[in-house]
Design a binder for these strands. Sequence first.
DNA 1: TTAATAATACGCAACGGTGCGTCTCGCTGA
DNA 2: TCAGCGAGACGCACCGTTGCGTATTATTAA
Lengths: 191, 191
Amino acid sequence: MGAMLSSRRGAPRSEKSRQAILDAVSSQFQERGYASLTIEGVAAQAGVGKQTIYRWWSTKSDLVAECLLEGRLFPDRLSLPDTGDLRIDLIDWVGQIFELMRDPAGRGLVTSLIAAATANEQIGQRLRETLGGHQSVLARLTAGVEAGQLSPNRPVAELSEALVGALILKAIGGGGTEPQDAVLLVDAILS
Amino acid sequence: MGAMLSSRRGAPRSEKSRQAILDAVSSQFQERGYASLTIEGVAAQAGVGKQTIYRWWSTKSDLVAECLLEGRLFPDRLSLPDTGDLRIDLIDWVGQIFELMRDPAGRGLVTSLIAAATANEQIGQRLRETLGGHQSVLARLTAGVEAGQLSPNRPVAELSEALVGALILKAIGGGGTEPQDAVLLVDAILS
DNA sequence: TTAATAATACGCAACGGTGCGTCTCGCTGA
DNA sequence: TCAGCGAGACGCACCGTTGCGTATTATTAA
């Protein structure tokens, strides 16, 4: 009962292997996308036995989820700026994402993340919070309310959800991703 | 040149087989979801050779796309009502979708559609237009403008995108789908 | 008119290939 | 001493392709 921490014999988990596996997942994900990422490919690139992967992760989506949790799957250049002007900041951020999505590889990255999210709820939540910037958008909207740039009675949580959702819809279903579309979208949300 | 319609020799395409295949796709999609739907399973259930499938469709996603195009993948009970009151109609419609998503099977259906959309842009567009009800939402919003229930200078296309996007985000990332959440979301969109 | 021929789609079965997830092997190191 | 390790063989499922023999159809020739 309780914690029996010290009574384990034998070798502990190899942190080196773990890192090599997660590095390989990140690399393969960006090169080939989620659908054609394979456990065997990851094991080969990481120089690791398959069993070492299956010992610690049960599915491909679990593996990708842990990568996402550690922020290895995409660059953090997509951070939401904060210049004090809420509208400009959002347009800038949405514009950056649109620019990424105009590049086929970048769009593939986004759709792969969405595909992974459909396979693993944890990824979906993390995507919503991290990549989608849901939390940061939410925080930024809240800050905008405090700065008087947004009416205090606007439902910021729902607006954030709608904004991020529109990005996802554009990623999977097409729709304009030109710079002026960022302006239209943000203005529609901010009304 | 032009249309040489009648000058083909040999047996024409079997409409019976085509229907059997699309029926099987629809059935398998709803039973097992997009990820674990297989061509071989479809062929077996349809009583058809695999080659008959590969002759007319090149990929699994193409197959699913055609099913979606013909409206066989989900019931049409999700149609957007039109009682004349825009807000009530939208809340009602979003509420129906939320109800579907609260059922694990229904949510699986939606996430499977999203997964299929990440594999096939055509599916994405159709999803956006048909299931997402993008067109009908758009039409309904436009009608609302004409009825004076929405300011004429609201960007209805972007609002529609945001609303449908929020539904998708909730499907993949969680988020509240209780009846009152439908009210919050619709009111956020309509401001 | 009628029979032969050519073109095409069909169901079926088998193929090599790929990746899955499980399962042993020795080996290493705490 | 013994759990984790790299390696890799195994059976399985499904992929996409190919060849077979048969049906169905339009064209052509008798």
